[in-house]
């Protein structure tokens, strides 16, 4: 095709892709080395390392779902205000007024799916013994990512501000009240007193730190919103980068020696 040829020979195209199309062996190698997004991968890989029956593709799917959550999450942030006055009404409007009314569904089901695929990915890593040396530390990073995935889901659960949301968060965060020493109903908190004054009260314990208040209220909504949209995603992004980098540095996908 002449037009395709013209485009591929233009200065603009060549400034972006510094090599011809990856149609022959040489250029298929070059594309992996010169493309930012592809350079996460090695150039070549053992055949069993990409067999679906071996990998289940669950790590990749989890990462893809994280990207889906990021994109739909940003779009949802255009419509949503984390205040007692607006939160619930904005969710209602998202369902009834906004075009593309499945945005919240994509985000919610994507989040549930991400929890499940994270578990399945770890299940596969365990069953193939891939956490064994030299990949021990990457497994540890993976466990932290699991924890952060659950926290992302948990903080997001509150944002619709309906009955389902606040009571699930209330039940979940009530546990923090019983933290040993640091929760005001926890064992040993009686020991933390200074001059007869309790240090750990319902206004200063672990649960208060989590909720920003004595019960799930507007402070909690704001706190969870910031954690959900900024703090945890940033931490996840950083750990993901390390996780992927370590996969390569620890010898690529695992296989029998």
């Amino acid at each position: 095709m002449a037009i395709g040829e013209t485009i591929r020979n233009s200065q603009i195209w060549k400034s972006i892709f510094r090599h011809p199309m990856p149609l022959d062996r040489r250029n298929r190698i070059v594309v992996m080395l010169t493309n930012f997004f592809l350079h996460l991968h090695p150039v070549s890989i053992k055949k069993q390392g990409i067999a679906l029956s071996f990998t289940w593709c669950m790590g990749g799917v989890t990462f893809f779902l994280f990207l889906v959550e990021t994109v739909t999450g940003v779009l949802l942030m255009f419509y949503y205000r984390p205040t007692l006055e607006w939160a619930y009404n904005d969710i209602l409007a998202l369902r009834d007024v906004t075009s593309l009314g499945i945005l919240r569904e994509l985000h919610r089901w994507g989040a549930h799916a991400m929890v499940i695929t994270t578990w399945l990915h770890m299940y596969r890593v365990f069953l193939t013994g891939s956490y064994k040396p030299p990949r021990e530390f990457n497994w540890v990073i993976g466990v932290i990512l699991l924890l952060l995935t659950l926290l992302l889901s948990f903080t997001g659960y509150l944002l619709p501000w309906d009955q389902l949301a606040i009571w699930a968060i209330t039940v979940g965060s009530n546990m923090a009240r019983a933290t040993p020493f640091l929760g005001y109903e926890g064992p040993g908190q009686q020991l933390l007193t200074v001059g007869g004054i309790d240090m750990i009260t319902d206004g200063s314990d672990a649960r208060f730190g989590l909720l920003g208040a004595r019960f799930v209220g507007e402070e909690t909504l704001n706190r969870f919103y910031v954690l959900h949209c900024i703090a945890i995603p940033l931490a996840v992004a950083l750990l993901l980068a390390i996780h992927f980098w370590r996969v390569r540095k620890d010898g690529g996908i695992s296989g029998p020696l």
Partner: peptide
Amino acid sequence: MEKLDDEKVLVWPDLV
């Protein structure tokens, strides 16, 4: 079994 498919393939196109 995993040992049998020891040969290497290019990531583009097989994995990508």
